[in-house]
Design a protein around this nucleic acid. Sequence first.
DNA 1: CTGTTAGCGCGTTCAT
DNA 2: ATGAACGCGCTAACAG
Lengths: 337, 337
Amino acid sequence: MPSTIVDVANLAGVSPSTVSHVVNGTRFVSEGTKERVLEAIEATSYMPDALARSIRRDRSESVGLIVSDAAQSIFAEMILGVEEEARARGLVLLLANSGADPAREMESVRTFRKRRVEGLLVAEVAHRPNEIAQYLKSKGIPLVLLDRVSEPAYDQVGVGTQEPMRSLVGHVLELGHTRIALIAGDTSIPTLRDRAHHFQAAMREAGFPPEAIGVVDSVPTQADAANAVAKLMSTAGSTRPTALVSASLNMTVGTLTAIRRLGLRVPADVSVVSFDKLPYDDLFETSLTGLVQPAFEIGRQAMKLLVRRLQDPNADPATVALTPRLVVGGSSAPPAE
Amino acid sequence: MPSTIVDVANLAGVSPSTVSHVVNGTRFVSEGTKERVLEAIEATSYMPDALARSIRRDRSESVGLIVSDAAQSIFAEMILGVEEEARARGLVLLLANSGADPAREMESVRTFRKRRVEGLLVAEVAHRPNEIAQYLKSKGIPLVLLDRVSEPAYDQVGVGTQEPMRSLVGHVLELGHTRIALIAGDTSIPTLRDRAHHFQAAMREAGFPPEAIGVVDSVPTQADAANAVAKLMSTAGSTRPTALVSASLNMTVGTLTAIRRLGLRVPADVSVVSFDKLPYDDLFETSLTGLVQPAFEIGRQAMKLLVRRLQDPNADPATVALTPRLVVGGSSAPPAE
DNA sequence: CTGTTAGCGCGTTCAT
DNA sequence: ATGAACGCGCTAACAG
């Protein structure tokens, strides 16, 4: 039912190729015929079929984005950044949510490939990119990692770790805390391993002996983190931390949940600072001290990186490390004692 | 570089049509040749080109989703619901963010049409659907509205208004409040008009005379709401509300912002209840009393509605009104006096 | 300055 | 039980 380029050509009394050239401005067409063509386009409300065009030009003008959890605010903002930049480049965005399931992720990769996406952006917390990366490389489809800075062999965009973690720890130290623990999550995940590493480094720089640096590892979920924090905060007074540093949004949620359940107060009983701020936390009396991720910008930059690679497939892999911003809220204060 | 159906056919020593039939199971192929074809597919790592297939079958197996702000948690969850259901149906999801800009929205509609999406889902706060709806109807492309129940002529999914608002107001009344104001937002928006309407109805039912029912209208943005609330709460003691009902997430943000700035305390100085809960608010000491939207389910149901319409284009328009859940938090308490 | 022709990769009659 | 041939809608040589 939609009108085709032939309909327009017939109506205008010209050949399809002329219509094509008018539409795409790809060769000179005399004013007279051009006008007749444009009228015919108007009359038939013709619109080029992007699929047919893609197949003919061998350019789909689409990119795929795979995230592990589109509902998490940080990913949601990244999606926004990707979308905006994609739109600006005239690229259509295909979205898939993997739920952090490698099988679903791979399935989406294949689906996207079938649709001939020109490139892929992947924001996946869990595993290393090798599996899909090799597949894509073998097919010649560019890949950009989001929320990552730990894989120098790939194009990737994320936030730096060292400086931000140093400023976060520095803030806690300046308040006078000496018993500080990191709720690290699962350090088999590269991003979290990095954060734990630089937490320890920052603590050592401040003169803490290694054995005095508390790191709660192997707590992949919010519930695990909550349990661990509950245990940690139930210990006797002299070993109980006075400040908790949480390494990710999930860890922050788990940490705060445990603290609420224990009936402890922030920051009176314990200070909490976070590598990832919660959305809207500053509306509450005890707003969070933590780092605000430039998530939108991560998305934008990643899309830019992808465009760059599409234009120059042989460019060296680039890592863009953005800087999160430390916001001091009410959740951190000097220790009580 | 990707291998085509012809490559496979040559390698297997059969015709392209046989390969096609093997791939699609669309007619009988003898065991022997079928096996050879499958081997050839494996060997050449052949994958059907979804674009070529779409153009040939006249079915793109894709749908478009347009939201006004993908970063807002409620929309983010809807996206998730849509994606999950789309994936389950083998449909690919094209996403666009309109930023509540009708021009951008229309542009996305056209882009999606060019890509031959089979249907469109639109979650747009601002205006009525007529403009794009007529366009799509004329093109025979199904449309489903998300986060709406106010347009019975369309397929739409959202939350009901009457019962939820009644329970919200009921909760405030039970606490003993008598000076209650609704922060309505912009009631030229159908959804918000509905909410204001049922707020007033619930108040009247409770015996309040119309002139005693406070509704703050014409405050489209968070900042507007904050200003209005600031003004409202600065009035003398006997007219100042003891409870605020906010009609949307934006209004809640504005309301809480103003309250913080004024140095007032929730719920000691004023109770706040919200039609939309904030994400993660229950991690804080003063968690919010309000309605939790089943946003994921809205997305899923909307996608199901779209599939239904694709199968039966002449079905009557359906409205699915889901029920939000009232969660009582610490932001509401009996009035102080 | 414009038209004719030949595919892009695939699904699908129509034959045999 | 399989193949040959055509066309989906479009762009890009290659004429002229």
